[in-house]
């Protein structure tokens, strides 16, 4: 069964980039969210296996969104993709249950490698 992916980023360009780069993966993209509130709603509705999550977003930031996602389903594999250079925030995200972390801008190779790891770990 294909893993279900949700892409969360307030930038449509970024969302498209991620979508394009993950096209070759055995993932079913079940939705895209532009802010945390939308994202939480979609997680609740569609129960994705994997979520790519931006941190700086309007309405609800990535950390709060991550907390909500973990409340809904702690098994969700969350990959933080952010331009925010603050490492403490990143570490807090890991604390809250994120399983992957990437800095923007992303390129295809890095994204592939990170997803390989994330899904491989998932498969264990």
């Amino acid at each position: 069964m294909k893993k279900k992916l949700l892409i969360v980023d307030d930038s449509s360009v970024m969302r498209r980039t991620i979508e394009k780069n993950l096209a070759d993966y055995d993932l079913e993209i079940i939705g895209q969210a532009a802010n945390g509130v939308e994202a939480v709603q979609m997680v609740m509705d569609k129960r994705p296996d994997v979520v790519t999550l931006d941190i700086t977003m309007p309405e609800m930031d990535g950390i709060a969104c991550l907390e909500e996602i973990m409340k809904i389903n702690p098994e969700t594999k969350v990959m933080i993709i952010t331009a925010l250079a603050d490492k403490l925030t990143g570490l807090i995200a890991l604390d809250k249950g994120a399983r992957g972390f990437m800095y923007k801008p992303v390129n295809a190779d890095d994204l592939a490698r990170s997803f390989d790891k994330l899904l491989k770990r998932d498969g264990e």
């Binding site: 490492k87 403490l88 990143g90 570490l91 807090i92 890991l94 604390d95 399983r99 992957g100 972390f101 990437m102 800095y103 990170s114 790891k117 994330l118 770990r121």
Partner: peptide, 30 residues
């Protein structure tokens, strides 16, 4: 702030569930 991050970072380094590369990206005293 860096110290707080360092402690958190080291904890994640010893957490085998966390990918080393992922954690190392967040090295606060890089």
């Amino acid at each position: 702030r860096e110290l707080e991050a360092l402690e958190m970072f080291m904890r994640h380094l010893f957490n085998e569930d966390m990918d080393e590369e992922v954690v190392n990206q967040l090295n606060p005293i890089d």
